[in-house]
Design a protein around this nucleic acid. Structure first.
Length: 884
RNA sequence: GGGCAGUUAGCUCAGCUGGAAGAGCAUUUCCCUUACAAGGAAGAGGUCGCAGGUUCAAGUCCUGCACUGCCCACCA
C-alpha cells in the first residue's frame, strides 16, 4: 500500500462522493425495528449557488446525520429546493432583459415557460454542490416546493385555512414594492438608515389668522393628507382640536385630530396624517373616521394630485412640492435628518406603503399555539437564547399578507364565479383544488382563478410536512414514521421568516411540532465581522476552498468555528490550518500503515488490545475521555467542541507523544512487541477516525478502508464505546514523565545544545514516590529527551560540568562540556525567583484560616503539594548556586 | 425606544457547573531526527473593557457603566 507523502484530497473526495451516492449509503427506508432520526434540509432557492452559509448549514446537518447513523438510528436527511418566488422571477426577468425581452411582452404563460426551463437547466446547481461537500442526503427524495406533491400540500393548506375563516381578502395598507410590482409581508421589508431632511411646513387655520407647523419627511404626500394630529395632552395645541386647516398648495380643508400615538417631543408635536401611505396614519384614520386618499399608484407615480404633479415619481414630486411650498412661503425650515427607510428584501427598491386589495392570513390563534409549543418544551431551541426573540415576535405579530402580484409561484386556489362577459359575479369565491363545476349560489358554470400567487414562504412553511406527502397522500406512512422530524438546523436570519411559520403550520395541520429540536447557528462573516457581500468584495467562495484545500478542510474549519449563539468569522488561514490537520492525519496513518506492512500482513494486529505499559494505558484513558466529551457534544449540537477536542487529542497527545513513544517498540526486533504496540496505535487511530468522520467524512473513509479489510465503510460502522476506564492513575504518572522530558528539552534549548545531541544525566531522587515510576519509564526519557544514559542516586553532589533542572521529583543534572557558568547562574536565579514567588503564594494561602477551613480538601492538598515542591526547589537551587 | 450577543496574546477565537490564563495564525531560536518542513522542539507575548459587590478564592456569579455588533419597533 503506497500512500503519498502529501494527502491527495482531490482524488479521494471525488471517489468517495461518488461512492455514497452510487451505493445509496444515505437512502432511508421505513424500518420499524429502528428509531428514525430525521432532518429536512432548509430548501435553498433555485437561484442560489453554494455560499459559505449553505456550506456551514449543510456541514452541520451532515455531521449530525452521520453521527446519529453511527449511533444506530435509521437516519434520513431530505434534500430539496425552494422555488423562491420573487427572487427567481427577478433573476429570469433580468436574463430576458439581456435578450431584450420584457416579461409583459411574453405574457404570463410564456414567461412561466421560460422560468420552468431555466429551473430545469440550472435549478439543481446547489444540490450538485451539496454533493461536492459530501452531504449524506437521501437523493431519492429530492423535493421542490413547486413540484406536484408539494403543490397539493399548498392547495390543501390554503383551502383548509380558508374554510376555517382564517384566510380573507381585504383592502388594506400593505408594503408595496414598485419595482417588483407586488405586495410584501411585513418581514420582507428591510430597514436601512438613510440621510434625508425634515421639512417644517405651515398649515394655515381656516378661521384664524394663524397656522400650525408640521414636521415631515415626506412633503410630497401632502396631497393625501386628510388630517393633522396632535397629542391630546399637548397644552400647546389642545385648544385646536377639531379646528379646520387649509392644506397648503391645494386649499383642501382638513381638521385637527388628537391621538396619544403622537409624540409631543418629536418635531413640532404636530403630524400630518396620510392614511393611504403610512401605517401609523392609517391607524389614526381608522380611529377618527378619516377619509383615505390614494396619491401614489402601484408604479410609484403620483395620482389624484394637481395637474402639474400628476404622473411624477415620488422623488420628482418631492422636489417640486418643496420648491412650490417654498415659493408660497409655507416652508419654515429644513433640517438634516436620518431615519430608516424600508426596502424590498429582494431588489432593495424603496417600499411604498399603499392601500391595496390583498389576501391575508389571520395568525392570532396559530401564534398562540406556536408560543405554547416552545414554552412547553415540545420543541427546544439550541442555544436557548433564541427562545425569547421567537416568542416576542410571535406575540406581536400582525396578519400575514400572503398574496403576491407576481407570476412565478403557487396560484391562489380561489375561483370566482363569472358571468357570460367574464365579469366577476357577487357570488362567494370558492377555494378548491381544481376549477369548480358549478357555483353553489347562482348555479353558474364559469369561473376564473385568482391571478395572485402565494408568498413563497407559504409553501416553505409547509416544507417539513409536504416533503412527506402531506396533502397528497392522506395515509402517508413516511409522515407517520419520519415525522415529527428530529431537528431543524438553520441560521438565525430566518427564524421569523421561516422557522416560526413552520411551527405554526405544523401545529395547525398535524397537531404536532415539526421538529423536536431547533439548532440555530450563526452567520458566516469575513475576518472583520462584516457580512460577506459582492459589493464589499469579501466573499470567500466555498468552491474555491474545496478546490484549494478540500471539502474536508472546508467542513472542519467551519464546524470548528461554529460556536452556538455566535456568528462565525472566517478567512483563508482557517482553511489552511484545517488542510494541515488533514495532512497530519494522513501522515500519522501512513506511518502506522508502513509499520503494519513490515509485520507482513495488515490483518495481523490484535483485535483485542492489551495495554502493557504506561504510555498505552495513558493514551487509552485520554482517548476515552474525549470519546465521552465528543459524544455529549454531538448530542447537544456543540459540533465546534467535537472538532476542537479531536484536533487537540490527535495532534498533541496521539501524534506528539504516543506515536513518538511507540517508535521505541516499533524499532524493536521482537515482532510480538511491535504487534502489541501497533494494535493500540491502530485501535486509537480507528477510534479517532470514527469520532471525526461525521465532520471529515472523506479522509476518514479513505483511511478506514485502507486499515479495515471489513466490508463496512466507516459511515456504517458503530461509534466506539468506553472500555478501559480503569487506567486513571496512568494520567498522573505520565504527567511526571512528560514533565521531566519537557524540562530537559527546555534546558538543552536554553543551553544552546542541539536537540539531536545525546547527553548523560544524573537523577538525584527528591521524592521517593516518583522513583519507581521514572525508573520504569526511563526509556521514554532517553528516547524523547535524547539522553544516552541515566544514573539514579540519592544525595548526589552537583558534578562540575553540569546544568541543573528540577522536575518530576528529581534534581536532574545534565553532564555538559565547557559550561558557561554565568549563563547557568542567571538561568538559575530566574528559576529561583519563580520558585520563591510560588512559596510566597502558597504560604499565604495555607496561613489563611478561612481557606483551610472552607476550601475543598482536595484543593488544600493541592496547595500543600505545591508548597512543598516549591520549597524543595528553592532549597536545591540555593545549594546549587553556592556550589557555582 | 426594546431585545440579544460580544469586549481574553499582534490577528481570529476557545475557556462547562468559580480553585495557579489556552489554541490556531503571526513572531524569535534551534532542527530537513527514518509519518508529516502543510513538520518537530523550545521561547517571547494577556493588570481577561471599566467600576463596584458576593466569596477563603472571580475571566468565570451579581449590579452598574462604556464601547462594538445584530435583531425588533408606531424614528411623523
Amino acid at each position: 500500500m503506497d500512500m503519498d507523502k502529501v494527502y491527495n484530497f482531490k482524488e479521494v473526495e471525488k471517489r468517495w462522493g461518488k461512492y455514497w451516492i452510487e451505493n445509496k449509503t444515505f437512502s432511508a427506508k421505513i424500518d420499524k425495528n429502528k428509531k428514525p432520526f430525521t432532518i429536512v434540509i432548509p430548501p435553498a432557492n433555485v437561484t442560489g449557488s453554494l455560499h459559505m452559509g449553505h456550506a456551514l448549514n449543510a456541514t452541520l446537518q451532515d455531521a449530525i446525520i452521520r453521527f446519529k447513523k453511527m449511533q444506530g438510528y435509521n437516519t434520513l436527511w431530505v434534500p430539496g429546493t425552494d422555488h423562491g418566488g420573487i427572487a427567481t422571477q427577478n433573476v429570469v426577468e433580468k436574463l430576458l432583459k439581456k435578450e431584450g425581452i420584457i416579461k409583459y411582452d411574453l405574457g404570463r404563460e410564456k414567461f412561466l415557460e421560460k422560468v420552468w426551463k431555466w429551473r430545469s437547466d440550472t435549478g439543481d446547481t446547489i444540490l450538485n454542490q451539496l454533493k461536492m461537500i459530501g452531504c449524506g442526503l437521501d437523493w431519492d427524495r429530492v423535493s421542490f416546493t413547486m413540484d406536484k406533491s408539494r403543490s397539493k400540500s399548498v392547495k390543501k393548506a390554503f383551502i383548509q385555512l380558508f374554510k376555517r375563516g382564517l384566510i380573507y381578502k381585504g383592502k388594506r395598507l400593505v408594503n408595496w414594492c414598485p419595482r417588483c410590482s407586488t405586495a410584501l409581508s411585513d418581514i420582507e421589508v428591510e430597514y436601512e438608515d438613510e440621510k434625508s431632511s425634515l421639512w417644517y411646513i405651515k398649515y394655515p387655520l381656516r378661521d384664524f389668522d394663524s397656522y400650525v407647523i408640521v414636521a415631515t419627511t415626506r412633503p410630497e404626500t401632502i396631497f393625501g393628507d386628510t388630517a393633522v394630529a396632535i397629542n391630546p395632552d399637548d397644552e400647546r395645541y389642545m385648544h385646536l382640536v377639531e379646528k379646520i386647516l387649509k392644506l397648503p398648495l391645494v386649499n383642501r380643508e382638513i381638521k385637527i385630530v388628537s391621538d396619544y400615538i403622537v409624540d409631543k417631543s418629536f418635531g413640532t408635536g404636530v403630524v400630518k396624517v396620510t392614511p393611504a401611505h403610512d401605517i401609523i396614519d392609517n391607524e389614526i384614520a381608522k380611529k377618527n373616521n378619516l377619509e383615505t386618499i390614494e396619491i401614489i399608484d402601484i408604479n410609484g407615480k403620483m395620482i389624484n394630485t394637481p395637474e402639474k404633479y400628476q404622473g411624477l415619481n415620488v422623488e420628482e414630486a418631492r422636489k417640486e412640492v418643496v420648491k412650490d411650498l417654498k415659493k408660497a412661503d409655507f416652508l419654515t425650515k429644513i433640517e438634516d435628518y436620518t431615519h430608516s427607510v424600508g426596502r424590498c428584501y429582494r431588489c432593495l427598491a424603496k417600499i411604498e406603503p399603499l392601500v391595496s386589495e390583498q389576501w391575508f392570513l389571520n395568525v392570532e390563534e396559530m401564534s398562540k399555539k406556536a408560543v405554547a409549543a416552545v414554552n412547553d418544551a415540545k420543541t427546544i431551541f439550541y442555544p436557548e437564547s433564541w427562545k425569547r426573540p421567537y416568542i416576542l415576535w410571535l406575540e406581536n405579530l400582525r396578519d400575514w399578507c400572503i398574496s403576491r402580484q407576481i407570476w412565478w409561484g403557487h396560484k391562489i386556489p380561489i375561483y370566482y364565479c363569472v358571468d357570460d362577459k367574464n365579469n366577476k359575479t357577487s357570488c362567494k369565491p370558492i377555494a378548491s383544488f381544481d376549477k369548480p363545476k358549478e357555483c353553489q349560489h347562482c348555479k353558474g358554470e364559469n369561473f376564473v382563478q385568482e391571478e395572485d400567487v402565494l408568498d413563497t414562504w407559504f409553501s416553505s412553511a409547509l416544507w417539513p410536512i409536504s416533503v412527506f406527502g402531506w396533502g397528497e397522500n392522506e395515509n402517508s406512512q413516511d409522515l407517520k414514521y419520519f415525522y415529527p422530524t428530529s431537528v431543524l438546523v438553520t441560521g438565525h436570519e430566518i427564524i421569523y421568516l421561516w422557522v416560526a411559520r413552520m411551527v405554526q403550520f405544523s401545529l395547525e395541520f398535524t397537531k404536532d411540532v415539526p421538529y423536536r429540536d431547533i439548532f440555530i447557528h450563526g452567520i458566516v462573516r469575513d475576518k472583520h465581522g462584516k457580512k460577506m457581500s459582492k459589493s464589499l468584495d469579501n466573499v470567500v467562495d466555498p468552491r474555491d476552498i474545496i478546490e484549494k484545500y478540500g471539502a474536508d478542510a472546508l467542513r472542519f474549519a467551519l464546524t470548528k468555528s461554529a460556536t452556538p449563539g455566535k456568528d462565525i468569522q472566517i478567512f483563508e488561514e482557517s482553511f489552511l490550518a484545517a488542510r494541515n490537520f488533514a495532512n497530519k492525519i494522513w501522515n500519522a496513518s501512513r506511518f502506522i500503515l508502513m509499520n503494519l506492512e513490515s509485520l507482513g500482513n495488515i490483518d495481523k494486529v490484535d483485535k483485542k488490545i492489551n495495554p502493557t505499559e504506561l504510555a498505552d494505558e495513558w493514551i487509552v484513558v485520554e482517548f476515552e475521555s474525549i470519546l465521552a466529551k465528543v459524544k455529549t457534544a454531538y448530542d447537544s449540537y456543540n459540533i465546534d467542541i467535537v472538532a476542537r477536542e479531536i484536533y487537540d487529542f490527535f495532534w498533541t497527545k496521539y501524534c506528539d507523544w504516543y506515536i513518538e513513544l511507540s517508535k521505541i517498540r516499533m524499532m524493536c526486533s521482537d515482532i510480538n512487541i511491535k504487534r502489541q504496540v501497533l494494535s493500540i496505535l491502530v485501535y486509537i487511530l480507528k477510534g479517532v477516525l470514527q469520532l471525526l468522520s461525521p465532520i471529515m467524512p472523506f479522509i476518514t473513509s479513505e483511511i478506514w478502508q485502507i486499515l479495515n479489510k471489513d466490508k463496512k465503510i466507516i459511515a456504517e460502522s458503530v461509534f466506539p464505546k468506553v472500555k478501559f476506564s480503569q487506567f486513571f492513575e496512568s494520567l498522573e504518572k505520565m504527567r511526571t514523565v512528560q514533565d521531566i522530558i519537557v524540562k530537559i528539552r527546555t534546558l538543552k534549548s536554553e543551553m544552546n545544545i542541539s536537540s539531536a545531541v545525546q547527553i548523560e544525566a544524573l537523577f538525584n531522587v527528591l521524592d521517593d514516590n516518583k522513583e519507581k515510576i521514572v525508573k520504569e519509564n526511563e526509556h521514554y526519557i532517553k528516547q524523547l529527551a535524547k539522553i544516552v544514559s541515566i544514573q539514579f542516586g540519592k544525595n548526589i553532589k552537583r558534578p562540575k560540568n553540569s546544568a541543573l533542572t528540577i522536575a518530576g521529583g528529581f534534581e536532574i543534572f545534565l553532564l555538559l562540556e565547557g559550561i558557561d557558568i554565568e549563563k547557568e547562574k542567571s538561568r538559575l536565579l530566574k528559576e529561583l525567583a519563580i520558585a520563591e514567588q510560588e512559596v510566597e503564594r502558597t504560604v499565604a494561602k495555607l496561613n489563611n484560616e478561612n481557606f483551610v477551613k472552607r476550601a475543598a480538601k482536595v484543593e488544600v492538598k493541592k496547595i500543600q503539594i505545591r508548597f512543598s515542591d516549591a520549597t524543595v526547589k528553592v532549597k536545591k537551587i540555593y545549594e546549587s548556586l553556592k556550589f557555582l
